[in-house]
Simulated scan of single mutants.
Amino acid sequence: MNILLYDFLNSYIQYDLVHYLEKAGHKCANVLYREGVDKYEDEKFTARMEKDLDGGSFDLVLTTNFWPVVSKVCNRRGIKYVSWFFDSPPNLPTAECMEYECNRIFFFARADYERYKALGLSNVYYLPLAVNAERLSTLRVDEKKYGCEISFVGKLYESMLPAMMSHMDEYQRGYIDGVVKTQLQLYGGYIVDDVITEEFSESVRKRYRQLSEKAIQISRMELAWAVASHVTHLERMTLLSVLSGRHQVKLYTFELTEDERRILPKVEYCGSVDYLDEMPQVFAASKINLCPVLKANRSGIPLRALDVMGAGGFLLSSYQSELAEYFYDGQECVLYTSLEDAIAKADFYLAHEDIRQQIAAAGRARIQEAFGYEDRIEALLSV
């Protein structure tokens, strides 16, 4: 097949996706579009895409995540559009354009697939993410640079929720506090979308309007995301703070705020790492790799968890239903169901190297067996 790909977000999976498409004999035109694009209406990008399509005889267009602006062009021109989400939840306010016949939309999280399937869409599919085990098998690890007891690679998700709450009334602040405290205790369950209702969101907007006619009017989706990211932030900060008081902890992320540095004085801040070369070395050299999953991801196995195991690292992740479905907890990875559980398991597995190494090896074998790109690409192109 002759495939036109667009990469809008510097997608982590783009390199491996193109590699395996070409390995399977497909011809790929991979466009790195870095000019910013409106997801729904973008005249500049639309003109660029029309020109790209005119310049070649393409069988389909492929992107990571679904882009309505791409779907509109494909729909007009009658060309198949395949998209594969690597984000959960999808950052789309509506299902606009998803119903087009040209679309084949794949979700890595089953909960997202079921949500959109329930809307009556017949062109949505479930497909977990994949790992380039071939690339990771040739990894040369700098143990001296990246070795440590515990590492975490990822964002801390600083949220706008505290700023939003500062303008709410007492009842609204209390309600949000209750939601946050409850969600913090829940692993494998997500209540935010159910309890941050449109009615509650409208009451917040009304409160904002009372304070100022020019106040920002946040949507229910924006408020729910702020709550979910705040809960994730609190979990990650607490986990790192407590564990760094007991063990060596390295944090690989973007710049920390002053408050984060103050709360995490014992954490070794190491900056960000490159996905293809440095990140796998961190996973392979760390005795334990933390993976507290974003709370808004209801079920899916995040790419980070797969990459840890694919690099031969030991994965300690918050409970996620699909991780528990595809991997044997305690044999191929280790899942925790509370902060106390995470701390106890970190203590245990640092003290039992032989068991830890057996689990890491079994996790890697499972990745090589069931999470390769070859099967995923066949699924993407077969419908």
Rank of each mutant, 00 (worst) to 15 (best):
5 L>Y: 10
6 Y>Q: 08
8 F>C: 03
9 L>Q: 12
11 S>V: 14
13 I>T: 14
27 K>F: 12
28 C>N: 10
33 Y>N: 07
35 E>Q: 15
38 D>P: 10
39 K>Q: 12
46 T>R: 13
47 A>S: 14
51 K>L: 11
51 K>H: 12
54 D>G: 09
55 G>N: 10
57 S>N: 15
58 F>G: 03
64 T>Y: 14
70 V>S: 06
70 V>I: 14
71 S>M: 08
72 K>L: 12
77 R>C: 06
78 G>Q: 06
93 P>C: 07
98 M>W: 05
100 Y>P: 03
103 N>S: 10
109 A>M: 05
109 A>G: 12
115 R>N: 11
122 S>W: 10
122 S>T: 15
125 Y>E: 13
126 Y>R: 11
128 P>M: 05
129 L>Y: 02
134 E>P: 06
136 L>S: 06
143 E>Q: 13
143 E>A: 10
143 E>K: 14
144 K>L: 08
145 K>P: 04
146 Y>N: 02
151 S>W: 03
155 K>S: 15
156 L>W: 04
163 A>H: 13
166 S>I: 11
167 H>P: 10
168 M>Q: 04
168 M>C: 05
169 D>Y: 03
170 E>W: 06
171 Y>T: 13
176 I>R: 01
177 D>Q: 08
178 G>N: 09
180 V>W: 04
184 L>F: 05
184 L>E: 11
187 Y>C: 03
192 V>W: 04
195 V>N: 08
199 E>P: 10
201 S>R: 09
205 R>S: 09
205 R>G: 08
208 Y>M: 13
209 R>K: 15
209 R>W: 13
212 S>L: 13
214 K>W: 15
214 K>N: 15
216 I>F: 15
219 S>D: 11
231 V>F: 07
236 R>Y: 03
237 M>F: 10
241 S>C: 10
242 V>T: 09
243 L>D: 00
243 L>E: 01
244 S>V: 07
244 S>K: 02
246 R>F: 02
250 K>T: 04
251 L>K: 03
251 L>I: 04
254 F>Q: 14
257 T>M: 02
258 E>C: 05
261 R>T: 06
265 P>Y: 01
266 K>D: 12
266 K>P: 07
266 K>W: 07
267 V>G: 01
283 F>V: 00
284 A>R: 08
285 A>T: 01
287 K>Y: 05
290 L>N: 00
290 L>W: 01
291 C>N: 08
299 S>T: 12
301 I>R: 02
304 R>T: 02
306 L>Q: 01
307 D>G: 07
308 V>Q: 03
308 V>G: 01
313 G>F: 00
315 L>Y: 00
317 S>I: 06
317 S>H: 08
320 Q>W: 00
322 E>H: 03
326 Y>M: 05
326 Y>K: 07
326 Y>S: 07
328 Y>R: 10
337 T>H: 12
338 S>T: 06
340 E>W: 04
350 L>A: 03
352 H>R: 06
359 I>Y: 01
360 A>F: 05
364 R>H: 09
366 R>A: 06
367 I>H: 02
378 E>S: 14
383 V>N: 14
